[in-house]
């Protein structure tokens, strides 16, 4: 982890000095994470891409002002979440803000074509995942792309540092329960 962080510091410093390769490395490393964050707000592909690019523009503007490179991932996630909420707000799709407290609410039908999934087991996993609350979906998406950056991500998701382990376990437990069909999520249905 320390190595990753010092590598991040080097990349930021080099990019701030105008090194395109260093910038590319940052973009390559973290785009998937930002895409995940945007998609967890159920933005379509065009809006999700806008969120990712806006986040990169913000980083570009602040390249020489990132004081603590160890917190870059958290900073990126925070920025992407803010931009995603901005998109939702501006398009009038936002519901009243309860976003930070909702862990358990099932969401709308997934926007992807599950028929694409050949594997029955994976389809069941996707369906179970889609029925998780927003925060669990975000947390697990991030856990998939950046399994190490716990503290930064808990901070970015507005969770107390140290709570992410238990929360992740709880989300996984819920996911398993949905997979096993041992819970019926309220409001579930066609």
């Amino acid at each position: 982890m320390t190595e990753t962080f010092s590598a991040t510091a080097t990349l930021l410093a080099r990019a701030a000095q105008g090194d395109q390769h260093a910038w590319n490395a940052l973009v390559d490393e973290h785009s998937r994470l930002l895409w995940s964050v945007a998609r967890s707000f159920r933005l379509d592909a065009a809006d999700a891409n806008d969120v990712v690019q806006t986040t990169w523009l913000r980083l570009l503007e602040h390249l020489d002002r990132i004081e603590d490179p160890t917190r870059l991932v958290g900073w990126l996630v925070t920025t992407a979440r803010r931009e995603a909420m901005r998109v939702l707000r501006r398009s009038g799709r936002e519901r009243p803000v309860v976003e930070d407290t909702v862990l358990d609410r099932p969401d709308d039908a997934p926007p992807v074509d599950t028929a694409l999934l050949q594997d029955e087991r994976n389809r069941a996993l996707w369906e179970a995942f889609s029925r998780l609350g927003e925060k669990c979906r975000q947390l697990l998406r991030v856990a998939v792309t950046h399994p190490q950056a716990y503290d930064e991500i808990s901070e970015a998701l507005g969770m107390p540092i140290g709570s992410i382990g238990p929360t992740r376990r709880r989300c996984l437990t819920q996911l398993r329960a949905l997979l096993d069909g041992t819970v019926v999520v309220e409001g579930d249905g066609p």
Binding site: R39, P110, T114, L116, L117, N122, L125, L140, V144, R176
Partner: peptide, 13 residues
């Protein structure tokens, strides 16, 4: 389970 979820997300999204 997380690894499999990663595969599913990569495939579907």
């Amino acid at each position: 389970l997380l690894a499999r979820l990663g595969t599913v997300l990569d495939e579907l999204d």
